[in-house]
Simulated scan of single mutants.
Amino acid sequence: MLKPEEGVKILLEHLGEDVTRPGVVETPKRFVKALWELTRGLREPPPEVVFFPMEYDAEPGPVVIENISAVSLCEHHLLPIFLSVSVAYVPGDGVPGLSKVIRLVKWAAARPIMQERFTQWLADLLMEKLKARAVAVRVCGVHMCSFIRGVRDEHHNMVTVAKRGDIDVKLRCRRPPLCK
């Protein structure tokens, strides 16, 4: 069976690159390592979510976390997608730790995605893992497949939204910071 590094070397040769050139000799190994990191969500379990008790009797309103930066890959071209994700949720019996919500979003993005489907899946995942009564998700993405090839439009944002349960909140997300 062909090792991933050997496949990358064959691809580079196919593209016309001299794979013996000093600057390229280690590229297959580095490329495979980078893809391994960018797709860790396919292999790692989701982060555990820690909950803190509600210490008051009032009904909590939505909790909003805006502009979580994440990187994904386009499942059609394996080129990066820079994401800015905003999440709102109505807590259930406990409040999840803030860092755990952010880690969960970053873990979920670490795989090849189609943004429309990813946003819906992320809303379902957050409902389950946060034990929330309601969730809203807004994902803003800059897709390198249309930024650097195809239409070559560096000014676009793709925005997708999903809601689960009864939640009334307006989410914003800014253009992903890696592409300003």
Rank of each mutant, 00 (worst) to 15 (best):
R152A: 13
R40L: 15
A123R: 05
L83I: 05
K170E: 15
D166H: 08
L12F: 09
R152G: 05
D93M: 11
V64H: 03
G165M: 04
V50D: 07
E48P: 09
G92P: 00
M1T: 12
V101T: 12
V142K: 06
P22C: 00
E5M: 04
D124F: 13
E17T: 12
G92N: 04
H77E: 08
T39Y: 08
D168I: 14
V105E: 07
V161K: 03
V24G: 02
M54A: 13
R21S: 12
R103H: 15
P177F: 14
V63L: 15
I81K: 04
L125S: 04
T160K: 07
K29W: 09
D57N: 11
A134T: 07
L126K: 00
I148Q: 04
K3D: 14
V139L: 03
K9Y: 00
V32T: 09
A58D: 04
R175G: 11
E75I: 11
L83V: 09
E17H: 13
H143L: 02
E116Y: 03
M127F: 07
N157H: 10
G7S: 12
P28R: 04
D166V: 14
A110H: 01
D18H: 01
V71K: 02
H14Y: 13
D18N: 14
I81V: 12
A108K: 05
R103Q: 14
W107Q: 03
R117V: 15
Q120S: 13
M127K: 06
R111L: 10
R149C: 07
A134L: 05
V71P: 00
E75M: 13
I102L: 11
L12C: 10
L125F: 11
T160Y: 11
G41V: 12
L79I: 10
V135F: 05
R164C: 02
H77I: 09
L38S: 00
P4D: 06
A58L: 14
P28A: 07
E26C: 10
H155D: 14
V64D: 00
R133T: 10
V8R: 01
A34C: 01
H155W: 12
V101A: 10
P28E: 03
V101M: 08
W121S: 15
V25M: 09
K180E: 12
V137H: 00
E154P: 14
G61P: 05
A109R: 01
P4A: 14
M127Q: 06
A134H: 00
A88W: 02
C140I: 00
H77T: 11
L38E: 01
L12P: 04
L122T: 08
F52D: 09
L122F: 13
S99L: 14
R164D: 03
K3M: 13
I68Q: 10
E66F: 15
P91D: 04
V63F: 11
V151N: 02
G97S: 08
L11C: 03
L171F: 10
R138N: 02
L73E: 01
G150I: 04
G97N: 10
M158H: 13
R103F: 13
R149Q: 14
L42H: 04
V8I: 15
D93P: 11
